[in-house]
Amino acid sequence: MGPALKLVVQRVALGLLLLLACSVLIFAGTMILPGDVAQSILGQSATPEALANLREELGVNDPPVQRYFEWLFNALQGDLGTALTNGRSITESIGSRLGNTLFLAFWAAVISVPLAIFLGLLAVRYKDRWPDKLISAVTLASISIPEFLIGYLLMYLVAVKLRWFPSVSMINDTMSLGEKLSAIAIPVAVLTLVVLAHMMRMTRAAILNVMQSAYIETAELKGLNMFQVIARHAFPNAIAPIVNVVMLNLAYLVVGVVVIEVVFTYPGMGQYLVDHVSKRDVPVVQACGLIFAAVYIGLNLIADVVSILSNPRLRHPK
Protein backbone atom coordinates (compact mmCIF):
# COMPACT_ATOMS: atom_id res chain seq x y z
CA MET A 1 0.00 0.00 0.00
CA GLY A 2 1.46 3.39 -1.02
CA PRO A 3 1.79 6.15 1.54
CA ALA A 4 -0.92 8.20 -0.16
CA LEU A 5 -3.47 5.37 -0.05
CA LYS A 6 -2.56 4.63 3.56
CA LEU A 7 -3.09 8.26 4.53
CA VAL A 8 -6.42 8.41 2.66
CA VAL A 9 -7.69 5.28 4.42
CA GLN A 10 -6.58 6.70 7.76
CA ARG A 11 -8.33 9.98 7.04
CA VAL A 12 -11.59 8.28 6.06
CA ALA A 13 -11.51 6.10 9.20
CA LEU A 14 -10.87 9.18 11.30
CA GLY A 15 -13.78 10.95 9.62
CA LEU A 16 -16.15 8.12 10.50
CA LEU A 17 -14.91 8.12 14.09
CA LEU A 18 -15.44 11.86 14.26
CA LEU A 19 -18.99 11.48 12.95
CA LEU A 20 -19.70 8.90 15.64
CA ALA A 21 -18.37 11.28 18.29
CA CYS A 22 -20.57 14.02 16.83
CA SER A 23 -23.64 11.78 17.06
CA VAL A 24 -22.93 11.26 20.78
CA LEU A 25 -22.54 15.01 21.28
CA ILE A 26 -25.72 15.82 19.37
CA PHE A 27 -27.69 13.24 21.30
CA ALA A 28 -26.28 14.30 24.67
CA GLY A 29 -26.71 17.96 23.81
CA THR A 30 -30.40 17.60 22.96
CA MET A 31 -30.88 15.54 26.15
CA ILE A 32 -29.69 18.30 28.44
CA LEU A 33 -31.60 21.05 26.63
CA PRO A 34 -34.21 22.66 28.88
CA GLY A 35 -37.86 22.35 27.93
CA ASP A 36 -40.30 19.53 27.72
CA VAL A 37 -41.78 18.32 24.47
CA ALA A 38 -44.92 17.00 26.14
CA GLN A 39 -45.49 20.39 27.69
CA SER A 40 -45.03 22.19 24.42
CA ILE A 41 -47.40 19.82 22.58
CA LEU A 42 -50.16 19.92 25.15
CA GLY A 43 -49.75 23.53 26.20
CA GLN A 44 -49.68 25.20 29.62
CA SER A 45 -53.11 23.97 30.67
CA ALA A 46 -52.30 20.22 30.42
CA THR A 47 -52.89 18.05 33.48
CA PRO A 48 -49.90 16.22 35.05
CA GLU A 49 -51.47 12.86 34.18
CA ALA A 50 -51.83 13.76 30.50
CA LEU A 51 -48.19 14.93 30.43
CA ALA A 52 -46.97 11.70 32.06
CA ASN A 53 -48.97 9.60 29.62
CA LEU A 54 -47.64 11.45 26.65
CA ARG A 55 -44.04 11.18 27.91
CA GLU A 56 -44.48 7.42 28.30
CA GLU A 57 -45.89 7.20 24.78
CA LEU A 58 -43.01 9.20 23.31
CA GLY A 59 -40.40 7.01 25.04
CA VAL A 60 -38.80 9.96 26.80
CA ASN A 61 -38.51 7.99 30.03
CA ASP A 62 -36.22 5.19 28.76
CA PRO A 63 -32.57 5.28 29.87
CA PRO A 64 -30.57 7.67 27.60
CA VAL A 65 -27.88 5.12 26.61
CA GLN A 66 -30.51 2.68 25.37
CA ARG A 67 -32.28 5.45 23.48
CA TYR A 68 -28.99 6.60 21.91
CA PHE A 69 -28.17 3.18 20.51
CA GLU A 70 -31.69 2.65 19.23
CA TRP A 71 -31.55 6.06 17.56
CA LEU A 72 -28.10 5.45 16.06
CA PHE A 73 -29.00 1.97 14.84
CA ASN A 74 -32.15 3.25 13.15
CA ALA A 75 -30.35 6.27 11.69
CA LEU A 76 -27.75 3.97 10.11
CA GLN A 77 -30.59 2.16 8.36
CA GLY A 78 -32.00 5.42 7.10
CA ASP A 79 -34.78 5.73 9.65
CA LEU A 80 -34.46 9.01 11.49
CA GLY A 81 -37.58 8.42 13.56
CA THR A 82 -40.87 10.29 13.60
CA ALA A 83 -41.40 13.93 14.41
CA LEU A 84 -43.02 14.32 17.80
CA THR A 85 -45.10 17.27 16.71
CA ASN A 86 -46.89 15.86 13.67
CA GLY A 87 -46.04 12.15 13.81
CA ARG A 88 -44.65 12.11 10.28
CA SER A 89 -41.49 10.25 9.21
CA ILE A 90 -38.50 12.60 9.55
CA THR A 91 -36.63 10.85 6.77
CA GLU A 92 -39.40 11.67 4.33
CA SER A 93 -39.79 15.27 5.45
CA ILE A 94 -36.07 15.87 5.32
CA GLY A 95 -35.65 14.14 1.97
CA SER A 96 -37.18 16.88 -0.16
CA ARG A 97 -35.88 19.69 2.05
CA LEU A 98 -32.31 18.41 1.94
CA GLY A 99 -32.70 18.25 -1.83
CA ASN A 100 -33.76 21.91 -1.86
CA THR A 101 -30.88 22.97 0.38
CA LEU A 102 -28.39 21.10 -1.79
CA PHE A 103 -29.96 22.65 -4.90
CA LEU A 104 -29.39 26.14 -3.49
CA ALA A 105 -25.89 25.29 -2.26
CA PHE A 106 -24.98 23.70 -5.59
CA TRP A 107 -25.84 26.76 -7.64
CA ALA A 108 -24.18 29.10 -5.17
CA ALA A 109 -21.04 26.92 -5.37
CA VAL A 110 -21.12 26.71 -9.17
CA ILE A 111 -21.01 30.50 -9.32
CA SER A 112 -18.86 31.38 -6.31
CA VAL A 113 -15.99 28.88 -6.53
CA PRO A 114 -14.82 29.63 -10.09
CA LEU A 115 -15.48 33.33 -9.53
CA ALA A 116 -13.44 33.37 -6.30
CA ILE A 117 -10.52 31.54 -7.88
CA PHE A 118 -10.61 33.75 -10.95
CA LEU A 119 -10.69 36.89 -8.80
CA GLY A 120 -7.85 35.49 -6.68
CA LEU A 121 -5.74 34.90 -9.79
CA LEU A 122 -6.61 38.36 -11.05
CA ALA A 123 -5.57 39.87 -7.71
CA VAL A 124 -2.23 38.04 -7.91
CA ARG A 125 -1.69 39.16 -11.49
CA TYR A 126 -2.27 42.82 -10.52
CA LYS A 127 -0.84 42.57 -7.02
CA ASP A 128 -0.84 45.88 -5.12
CA ARG A 129 -2.36 47.69 -8.10
CA TRP A 130 -5.93 48.97 -8.33
CA PRO A 131 -7.66 45.74 -9.50
CA ASP A 132 -6.19 43.87 -6.50
CA LYS A 133 -7.24 46.58 -4.08
CA LEU A 134 -10.72 46.86 -5.59
CA ILE A 135 -11.30 43.10 -5.40
CA SER A 136 -10.08 42.98 -1.81
CA ALA A 137 -12.19 45.94 -0.76
CA VAL A 138 -15.41 44.71 -2.38
CA THR A 139 -15.14 41.13 -1.14
CA LEU A 140 -14.18 42.23 2.36
CA ALA A 141 -17.10 44.64 2.47
CA SER A 142 -19.51 41.94 1.33
CA ILE A 143 -18.34 39.49 4.00
CA SER A 144 -18.49 42.14 6.71
CA ILE A 145 -22.12 43.06 6.16
CA PRO A 146 -24.49 40.59 7.86
CA GLU A 147 -26.03 38.29 5.29
CA PHE A 148 -29.65 39.06 6.22
CA LEU A 149 -28.95 42.73 5.56
CA ILE A 150 -27.47 41.97 2.13
CA GLY A 151 -30.48 39.73 1.59
CA TYR A 152 -32.99 42.47 2.34
CA LEU A 153 -30.99 45.04 0.38
CA LEU A 154 -30.89 42.86 -2.72
CA MET A 155 -34.52 41.98 -2.24
CA TYR A 156 -35.42 45.65 -2.16
CA LEU A 157 -33.32 46.61 -5.17
CA VAL A 158 -33.67 43.60 -7.46
CA ALA A 159 -37.09 42.28 -6.55
CA VAL A 160 -39.04 45.33 -5.46
CA LYS A 161 -37.52 48.17 -7.50
CA LEU A 162 -36.28 46.42 -10.65
CA ARG A 163 -38.72 43.49 -10.48
CA TRP A 164 -36.23 41.11 -12.15
CA PHE A 165 -36.64 38.21 -9.73
CA PRO A 166 -39.21 37.22 -7.09
CA SER A 167 -38.52 38.21 -3.49
CA VAL A 168 -39.86 34.96 -2.06
CA SER A 169 -38.00 31.84 -3.09
CA MET A 170 -40.73 29.24 -2.76
CA ILE A 171 -40.01 26.31 -5.06
CA ASN A 172 -41.83 23.03 -5.63
CA ASP A 173 -41.55 19.94 -7.81
CA THR A 174 -43.90 21.21 -10.49
CA MET A 175 -41.61 24.09 -11.45
CA SER A 176 -39.21 23.83 -14.39
CA LEU A 177 -35.48 24.28 -13.86
CA GLY A 178 -35.63 27.80 -15.30
CA GLU A 179 -38.43 28.82 -12.95
CA LYS A 180 -36.57 27.36 -9.99
CA LEU A 181 -33.36 29.18 -10.92
CA SER A 182 -35.24 32.42 -11.28
CA ALA A 183 -36.77 31.85 -7.84
CA ILE A 184 -33.45 31.27 -6.11
CA ALA A 185 -31.47 33.95 -7.99
CA ILE A 186 -31.36 36.42 -5.11
CA PRO A 187 -30.44 33.96 -2.32
CA VAL A 188 -27.73 32.51 -4.58
CA ALA A 189 -26.37 36.02 -5.12
CA VAL A 190 -26.35 36.68 -1.37
CA LEU A 191 -24.61 33.38 -0.59
CA THR A 192 -22.04 34.04 -3.30
CA LEU A 193 -21.22 37.42 -1.82
CA VAL A 194 -20.86 35.88 1.64
CA VAL A 195 -18.48 33.04 0.70
CA LEU A 196 -16.51 34.83 -2.03
CA ALA A 197 -14.08 36.72 0.19
CA HIS A 198 -12.61 33.75 2.07
CA MET A 199 -11.97 31.72 -1.03
CA MET A 200 -10.63 34.64 -3.05
CA ARG A 201 -8.28 35.75 -0.29
CA MET A 202 -6.99 32.24 0.32
CA THR A 203 -6.39 31.75 -3.42
CA ARG A 204 -4.48 35.02 -3.50
CA ALA A 205 -2.44 34.24 -0.38
CA ALA A 206 -1.66 30.66 -1.38
CA ILE A 207 -0.52 31.62 -4.86
CA LEU A 208 1.50 34.60 -3.65
CA ASN A 209 3.20 32.30 -1.17
CA VAL A 210 4.10 29.90 -3.97
CA MET A 211 5.25 32.83 -6.12
CA GLN A 212 8.16 33.34 -3.70
CA SER A 213 9.57 29.93 -4.65
CA ALA A 214 12.73 29.53 -6.67
CA TYR A 215 10.91 27.47 -9.31
CA ILE A 216 8.78 30.48 -10.15
CA GLU A 217 11.97 32.35 -10.98
CA THR A 218 13.01 29.38 -13.14
CA ALA A 219 9.69 29.64 -14.96
CA GLU A 220 10.12 33.39 -15.49
CA LEU A 221 13.63 32.81 -16.80
CA LYS A 222 12.19 30.34 -19.31
CA GLY A 223 10.48 33.32 -20.88
CA LEU A 224 6.97 32.32 -19.81
CA ASN A 225 4.45 35.12 -19.49
CA MET A 226 2.82 35.96 -16.19
CA PHE A 227 -0.33 33.98 -16.92
CA GLN A 228 1.61 30.84 -17.89
CA VAL A 229 3.76 31.16 -14.79
CA ILE A 230 0.73 31.36 -12.50
CA ALA A 231 -1.40 28.73 -14.23
CA ARG A 232 1.30 26.12 -14.90
CA HIS A 233 3.70 26.52 -12.00
CA ALA A 234 2.03 28.38 -9.13
CA PHE A 235 -1.52 27.02 -9.15
CA PRO A 236 -0.70 23.25 -9.03
CA ASN A 237 1.32 23.88 -5.86
CA ALA A 238 -1.37 26.03 -4.25
CA ILE A 239 -4.22 23.55 -4.63
CA ALA A 240 -4.16 22.09 -1.11
CA PRO A 241 -4.86 25.29 0.87
CA ILE A 242 -7.36 26.49 -1.73
CA VAL A 243 -9.33 23.24 -1.69
CA ASN A 244 -9.41 23.36 2.09
CA VAL A 245 -11.01 26.78 2.25
CA VAL A 246 -13.33 25.98 -0.68
CA MET A 247 -14.64 22.92 1.16
CA LEU A 248 -15.13 24.89 4.37
CA ASN A 249 -17.23 27.37 2.43
CA LEU A 250 -19.20 24.66 0.65
CA ALA A 251 -19.96 23.20 4.05
CA TYR A 252 -21.12 26.62 5.13
CA LEU A 253 -23.39 26.80 2.08
CA VAL A 254 -25.19 23.67 3.28
CA VAL A 255 -25.00 24.10 7.03
CA GLY A 256 -25.07 27.83 7.47
CA VAL A 257 -27.94 28.85 5.22
CA VAL A 258 -30.50 28.96 8.05
CA VAL A 259 -30.71 32.74 8.01
CA ILE A 260 -30.99 32.97 4.23
CA GLU A 261 -33.69 30.30 4.08
CA VAL A 262 -35.72 32.12 6.70
CA VAL A 263 -35.28 35.50 5.02
CA PHE A 264 -36.41 34.16 1.64
CA THR A 265 -38.87 31.59 3.08
CA TYR A 266 -37.03 28.91 1.15
CA PRO A 267 -38.23 25.38 1.93
CA GLY A 268 -34.84 23.93 2.94
CA MET A 269 -33.25 22.19 5.89
CA GLY A 270 -32.51 25.39 7.75
CA GLN A 271 -36.10 26.52 7.97
CA TYR A 272 -37.23 23.03 8.89
CA LEU A 273 -34.68 23.00 11.71
CA VAL A 274 -35.66 26.42 13.02
CA ASP A 275 -39.35 25.50 13.01
CA HIS A 276 -38.79 22.37 15.03
CA VAL A 277 -36.33 23.84 17.49
CA SER A 278 -39.02 26.30 18.51
CA LYS A 279 -41.43 23.39 18.95
CA ARG A 280 -38.94 21.37 21.07
CA ASP A 281 -39.17 18.51 18.57
CA VAL A 282 -36.01 16.71 19.69
CA PRO A 283 -35.87 13.88 17.09
CA VAL A 284 -36.00 16.39 14.23
CA VAL A 285 -33.27 18.53 15.79
CA GLN A 286 -31.12 15.43 16.28
CA ALA A 287 -31.68 14.28 12.71
CA CYS A 288 -30.81 17.70 11.27
CA GLY A 289 -27.75 17.92 13.49
CA LEU A 290 -26.56 14.52 12.34
CA ILE A 291 -27.02 15.38 8.66
CA PHE A 292 -25.25 18.74 9.04
CA ALA A 293 -22.38 17.04 10.86
CA ALA A 294 -22.13 14.40 8.13
CA VAL A 295 -22.04 17.06 5.39
CA TYR A 296 -19.43 19.10 7.23
CA ILE A 297 -17.17 16.17 7.99
CA GLY A 298 -17.65 14.69 4.53
CA LEU A 299 -16.65 17.89 2.70
CA ASN A 300 -13.61 18.44 4.90
CA LEU A 301 -12.68 14.82 4.36
CA ILE A 302 -12.74 15.45 0.61
CA ALA A 303 -10.48 18.46 1.14
CA ASP A 304 -8.00 16.36 3.10
CA VAL A 305 -8.01 13.62 0.49
CA VAL A 306 -7.46 16.13 -2.34
CA SER A 307 -4.57 17.68 -0.37
CA ILE A 308 -2.97 14.30 0.07
CA LEU A 309 -3.41 13.37 -3.56
CA SER A 310 -2.09 16.73 -4.79
CA ASN A 311 1.23 16.10 -3.05
CA PRO A 312 3.54 14.38 -5.54
CA ARG A 313 5.81 13.18 -2.73
CA LEU A 314 2.97 11.08 -1.34
CA ARG A 315 1.56 10.09 -4.71
CA HIS A 316 4.91 9.01 -6.15
CA PRO A 317 7.16 7.83 -3.31
CA LYS A 318 10.87 7.40 -3.95
Binding site: S213, A214, Y215, E217, T218, A219, E220, L221, K222, G223, L224, N225, H233, P236, N237, S310, P312, R313
Partner: peptide, 22 residues
Protein backbone atom coordinates in the same frame (compact mmCIF):
# COMPACT_ATOMS: atom_id res chain seq x y z
CA UNK B 1 10.79 36.89 -22.93
CA UNK B 2 11.96 35.50 -26.27
CA UNK B 3 15.55 35.92 -25.10
CA UNK B 4 14.97 34.21 -21.74
CA UNK B 5 14.74 30.49 -22.10
CA UNK B 6 15.61 30.75 -25.81
CA UNK B 7 18.92 32.50 -26.42
CA UNK B 8 20.01 32.72 -22.78
CA UNK B 9 19.19 30.13 -20.10
CA UNK B 10 19.93 29.79 -16.41
CA UNK B 11 21.19 27.09 -14.03
CA UNK B 12 20.66 27.95 -10.39
CA UNK B 13 22.52 26.94 -7.25
CA UNK B 14 19.72 24.85 -5.82
CA UNK B 15 18.13 22.60 -8.43
CA UNK B 16 16.02 21.12 -5.64
CA UNK B 17 14.29 24.47 -5.15
CA UNK B 18 14.32 25.46 -8.81
CA UNK B 19 12.34 22.48 -10.05
CA UNK B 20 8.57 22.64 -9.60
CA UNK B 21 7.78 19.77 -7.20
CA UNK B 22 4.38 19.14 -8.80
Amino acid sequence: RKLRGGEVTYVSQSAAASFNPA
